[in-house]
Design a protein around this nucleic acid. Structure first.
Length: 874
RNA sequence: GGCGGCUUGGCGGAAUUGGUAGACGCGCUCGACUCAAAAUCGAGUUCCUUUGGAGUGUGGGUUCGAGUCCCACAGCCGCUACCA
């Protein structure tokens, strides 16, 4: 409101001062293996934030939530003797900069660089202890070089099924494989298939991106195009299995597993009589094969044309046309009303040789399984509905457990009307059926995944160009020589989509021309490419010979020399939350970010990491050992923050009015890190008031309104035992709470401690300094300023983390609760080590207790040492 | 429809292994200071029919004792959706 707002403490002066000091002195620089000041005996701690996309609208309050949490952890771990890697960078490729360029002609690099300047200023204004020497942007040419290099590792690798590992294709060359055979197995390969083409954006999208952009009003349609794909499906099983030892929220693991979508079943072949055609289907219920009374093909299935009879031709064609014009949305939405049409063709059920009709229907998708199903209407909901609508036969083959109706019964039961598997429970019936199919050459057991190969090419300007060349004569592709990396985009002025599905780079004819016979690939990589490996680059960000040195990779993976055995240099740290317990499989010790990346980013990064691991470039098989998802911060109205609702909080304004420490502290005090919680400006005021109280414990204002060190602050031993106890309790609780990421309770304890200091007549300097020590990671500016003002010349940030004095915590007498029949009736004070009998006697002596047990017999007395006494009487 | 999460005062939340429910903060009430206000400091603040009773979404259960464990149900939020 008013610019002359009174400041309860001069944060506007000392916050910029300390930020400048940290910048100039490089207080948070992290030494790397090879540096003069690198200490190999220190254990490493790698704490990572999800780096931001530097959008034009700047930082929002969601960013500082996770960033403050990791900053607290990082600053604490440094002081506990760890070599802490806590870097920051920019996920700076992205569509908005390109769309802005299309509108204005301003080069995306210019827009991006300006946005990075803003983001960096905002992050620095919050006092985060990043090692800015390690700053990276995915758009940096030196970064692009290694993104392209990693792509070439994928391009030059195949998946060895036997070893379940990626291997270089050179192994296949040595075995005499032809070029064509090798191209068929590369982890990066060319594929012509229907893709999601967006006419409005002039680009192709991954399946998982379609809905997001559609929601933003873009148009998307199916269209066959030639695309680069990554063979992530080969890793489907490992991506499920190797999730197990990771310290991730179970919900996120489940989300990934469901996305990969493993299902076990069988592939069954149905012969089309009097023809060479076989229809293959995938089913998870081979035990119901006797109940298959018809088949359904997806409208796009290649065999539709072959099996449709002359008199059904017209109906089938009409139906296919109708389906093609339906959007995916409509197709999904109308799931109550099944549609379909008979092809006129039949297939033979391999178990009983019966001829069953073949239909086409859009409830069968070409993209999953084989694009064809055997329909068992008695025991599949969708088939049941379809059969009822089109009056197809419904045959029971499973006897339900209990008294459920067999029609539409989909749970396991007992096989009936099923020949050789009659009487078997579903699980055994499945196994026996698979064995039969395999013996008779009619099918085999199979595992299917929902996960599709990763559509990796985009028709955009602002992305990494593929380092590939095409031979105009033979149509063969080949890798660009490594010494020609990075391959940057050509300079262009017109960024408008051409409508050519090869993307905007087709206009750069000079750039495309490589030699008389070779021309460049015009596709670029998706934004995911840069974010797939950025954590690796932080470990060695200025290395121009490798994407990461072997030495740095080993150390930051926790494989460095004598480091392995060391748990912590600090005495007895609680090692539950952030310690390195057991065999570490992931490289990053703690990764904090939002749930929006629960599936895609994390899955893609895991995939790349595994390939790099298989090829010997990294020593761990997973990138992120521990993952924590910060909760969403809602607007003051309890709704998601959005410009249209007008409930967006701007962090710059909060910093201006209350200071960076107040913003940091408030975001941590709101509630548990992982919870969704609404913003309350009154809460910021409360936290700001707390900081002012801490300030006034040590500072007082003179007549002239100047702040001077308070006369209450005295450099003498603490004689107030109660105060001493609170201070040491605070050191203990804050230390433990940081370890379990329970920042809100740590802050609440520091408030209790501050209230005790405020009430005290004399503030002992040593004890007050202890509070500043533990407050430091939360409110670094205020704590450093006060520490300096009261006469210390070493920054808190570089001092060892304080230990607490156990003896200050114990009391000679303790208060116990006395219950009668579980209800609180009285409290008694007893000696700390009082024997049970004495406690019991003291409890029974209580007049309140006697009142409540007056007309009753005492049956039992339960004494919980240090807690309570419960007298059971009736 | 499927999967996941959540449900504690007027509000945000605390209660780490089953052991004093409501720490801490916001808001509110009263008091001190002040001509006055702000700021600050202090006291109080779950509810009720207040010698007592009830109480952690609802109903049951286990236990000396349940916010916490078990069963059933309801409501809200998120993700996903004809996955064969």
């Amino acid at each position: 409101m008013s610019d002359e707002r009174r400041k309860p403490f001069p944060f506007d002066q000392f916050e910029p001062k300390w930020q400048q000091t940290w910048d100039e002195e490089k207080t948070f620089r992290t030494p790397n293996p090879g540096d003069a000041d690198f200490d190999a005996s220190k254990p490493k701690f790698f704490v990572l934030d999800m780096f931001p996309y530097p959008s034009g609208s700047g930082l929002h309050v969601g960013h500082p939530e996770g960033y403050t949490a990791t900053d607290i952890i990082g600053r604490t771990k440094v002081r506990q003797g760890f070599n802490v890697l806590h870097p920051m960078g920019w996920d700076s490729f992205g569509l908005p900069a390109e769309q802005y360029a299309i509108k204005t002609g301003q080069h995306p690099r210019v827009t991006t660089e300006a946005n990075i300047v803003t983001f960096k200023r905002q992050l620095k204004s919050l006092g985060f202890g990043y090692d800015w020497d390690r700053e990276i942007a995915t758009t940096d040419p030196e970064y692009v070089r290694w993104t392209q290099w990693i792509f070439l590792q994928l391009y030059n690798a195949y998946f060895d099924e036997e070893r379940q590992k990626a291997r270089p294709v050179s192994e296949l060359e040595a075995k005499g494989w032809t070029r064509e055979q090798i191209d068929d197995v590369r982890l990066a390969y060319i594929h012509e298939a229907p893709v999601n083409w967006s006419p409005s954006m002039g680009t192709v999208l991954a399946n998982e991106e379609v809905e997001e952009w559609r929601a933003k009003g873009e148009t998307v349609e199916r269209r066959p195009l030639r695309q680069w794909m990554l063979r992530i499906t080969k890793y489907a099983q490992r991506l499920i299995d190797e999730l197990d030892p990771l310290d991730w929220p179970e919900g996120i693991k489940l989300l990934q597993k469901n996305w990969i979508g493993r299902s076990e079943g069988a592939e069954v072949k149905f012969q089309v009589p009097n023809s060479k055609f076989q229809i293959e289907v995938f089913t998870t219920r081979p035990d119901t094969l006797f109940g298959a009374t018809y088949m359904v093909l997806a409208p796009e299935h290649p065999l539709v044309e072959e099996i449709t009879t002359a008199d059904q031709q017209a109906a089938v064609e009409d139906y296919i046309k109708a389906c093609a014009s339906k959007s995916d949305m409509e197709r999904g939405d109308l799931n109550k009303d099944k549609t379909g049409v008979f092809t006129g063709g039949y297939a033979i059920n391999p178990v009983n040789d019966e001829q069953i009709p073949i239909w086409i229907a859009d409830y069968v998708m070409m993209g999953y399984g084989t694009g064809a199903i055997m329909a068992v209407p008695a025991h599949d909901e969708r088939d049941f509905e379809f059969a009822k609508k089109f009056e197809l036969p419904i045959l029971q083959v499973v006897e339900p457990t209990g008294d459920a109706d067999w029609q539409g019964y989909t749970d396991p039961g007992t096989a009936v009307n099923s020949g050789f598997i009659d009487g078997l429970p579903t699980a055994e019936a499945k196994a026996k059926m698979i064995a039969w199919l395999e013996e008779n050459g009619k099918g085999r057991g199979q595992i299917n995944y929902k996960l599709r190969d990763w559509l990796f090419s985009r028709q955009r300007y602002w992305g990494e160009p593929f380092p590939l060349l095409w031979n105009k004569e033979t149509g063969e592709h080949s890798a660009l020589p490594e010494d020609e990396l990075p391959l940057l985009q050509p300079e262009m002025e017109d960024f408008k989509p051409t409508g050519d599905p090869r993307g905007p780079l087709v206009k750069a004819t000079d750039w495309i021309h490589y030699s008389d016979r070779l021309e460049r690939e015009t596709n670029t990589m998706p934004q995911w490419a840069g974010s797939c490996w950025y954590y690796l680059r932080y470990c060695d960000p200025r290395n121009n010979d490798r994407f990461i040195s072997e030495e740095a990779e080993r150390y930051w993976s926790g494989q460095g020399g004598d480091v392995a055995g060391a748990s912590s240099p600090v005495a007895d740290p609680p090692s539950t939350a952030t310690g390195q317990d057991g065999p570490a499989t992931g490289m990053v010790d703690l990764y904090v970010g939002g749930t929006e990346h629960a599936v895609l980013h994390l899955l893609y990064a895991r995939f790349w990491h595994k390939v790099l691991n298989d090829l010997g470039h990294v020593s761990t098989n997973e990138p992120f050992q521990r993952l924590v998802n910060q909760g969403l911060i809602l607007g003051e109205d309890g709704q998601k923050m959005s410009k249209s609702r007008g409930n967006v909080v701007n962090p710059d304004e909060v910093v201006r009015d209350y200071g960076a420490d107040a913003l940091r502290l408030y975001e941590m005090f709101m509630g548990p890190l992982t919870d969704t919680k609404p913003w309350q400006m009154k809460g910021v005021e409360g936290v700001s008031r707390f900081l002012a109280r801490v300030w006034r414990v040590a500072m007082e204002q003179n007549q002239a309104g100047e702040w001077t060190v308070s006369s209450k602050l005295q450099d003498a031993p603490c004689t107030d035992k109660a105060l001493l106890k609170v201070v040491h309790e605070t050191v203990k609780k804050v230390t433990e709470d940081i370890e379990r990421l329970s920042f809100n309770t740590a802050i609440s304890q520091m408030m209790v401690c501050t209230n005790a200091f405020t009430a005290a007549e004399v503030v002992p300097k040593a004890e007050f300094t202890l509070l500043l020590h533990v407050l430091n990671p939360f409110a670094p500016h205020l704590s450093e300023e006060l520490n300096q003002l009261i006469g210390h010349d070493t920054q808190l940030a570089t001092q060892p983390w304080p230990a607490y004095d156990e003896s200050a915590l114990v009391e000679s007498e303790i208060e116990l609760v006395v219950q009668v029949n579980g209800k609180l009736r009285d409290k008694i004070t007893v000696a700390k080590d009082a024997p049970k009998e004495d406690i019991e006697a003291a409890a029974q002596a209580s007049t309140k207790v006697q009142e409540f047990t007056k007309d009753k017999t005492v049956r039992k007395v339960i004494v919980v040492p240090g807690r309570l006494v419960n007298i059971v009487a009736n």
